[in-house]
Every structure is written in C-alpha cells, then in structure tokens.
C-alpha cells in the first residue's frame, strides 16, 4: 500500500504530497513529539493534531510514510513550505484521531 493508495482508500486530503509512492506500514497516533520519536516505526502513518513546524521535523526524522492531520486541523503556509522542502507527506481529514486510526487499520 502506497501513500497514494491510502489517500484514495481513506479519502484523505493531500496537503503536501512529496512522495506518493512511499510504502505505508502500520500506524502510530500521538501528539507528544518525543513519544512519537520513541515509539513510531519507520514507514508508519502518524496521526496527530499537532500543527507547528516541529511536527514536520519529527515526521522527517522519524521517517514516517505520512503525517495525517486529524480533526480537520490546518497548517500555516510556512509549515507547508517546510514540509515541501523536507519531502514529508502530509494528509488531512475531518475525522477524529480514533476514527482515522480505525480507518487506516481497515485498509492497510
């Protein structure tokens, strides 16, 4: 399953699609950045409501396949620019984090 497939199957909105062919494996949910860095695996989909620029850095360093912003939260333009520059996939959905995770689980 690629990030592009995930978007189609889950009806996520692509915010930054830097690497649509990236393989997706597993999922991690959390907003405390060090927990994400300590627990998320490379290739995971990371579901969060955190929207500051550090989210992009953590997504990149933890090497997640995509960040999914839940609850309809939005990014400011500088954060989008940063994600584009660092090649981090960012998707969004209006669903709450739990329902997003259930949906991701059902398709991967």
């Amino acid at each position: 399953m690629t990030v592009q497939d995930l978007i189609s199957r889950c009806h996520f909105t692509p915010v930054v699609l830097a690497d649509p062919e990236r393989e997706v494996s597993g999922c991690y949910v959390g907003d405390l950045l060090s927990w994400v860095m300590g627990r998320a695996q490379a290739g995971n989909v990371w579901i969060t409501i955190m929207t500051n620029v550090n989210t992009v850095a953590v997504g990149s360093l933890a090497d997640v396949s995509a960040v999914v912003l839940a609850e309809g939260v939005t990014l400011e333009q500088p954060v989008i620019d940063c994600a584009e520059a660092r090649g981090v996939n960012i998707l969004s959905t209006d669903l709450p984090a739990y329902e997003t995770a259930v949906l991701v689980h059902s398709v991967i």
């Binding site: 405390l32 950045l33 060090s34 927990w35 860095m37 300590g38 955190m50 500051n52 550090n54 989210t55």
Partner: peptide, 15 residues
C-alpha cells in the same frame, strides 16, 4: 504546548 517536555528526550537518546 509545542509538543515537547514529555520527559522522553534523554530516554530516547539512550534508546
């Protein structure tokens, strides 16, 4: 409030 300060920094560095 920025998502840090969870007390996981040094443990992660060790991990």
């Amino acid at each position: 409030s920025l998502g840090f300060g969870a007390g996981m920094g040094l443990p992660n560095m060790k991990r």
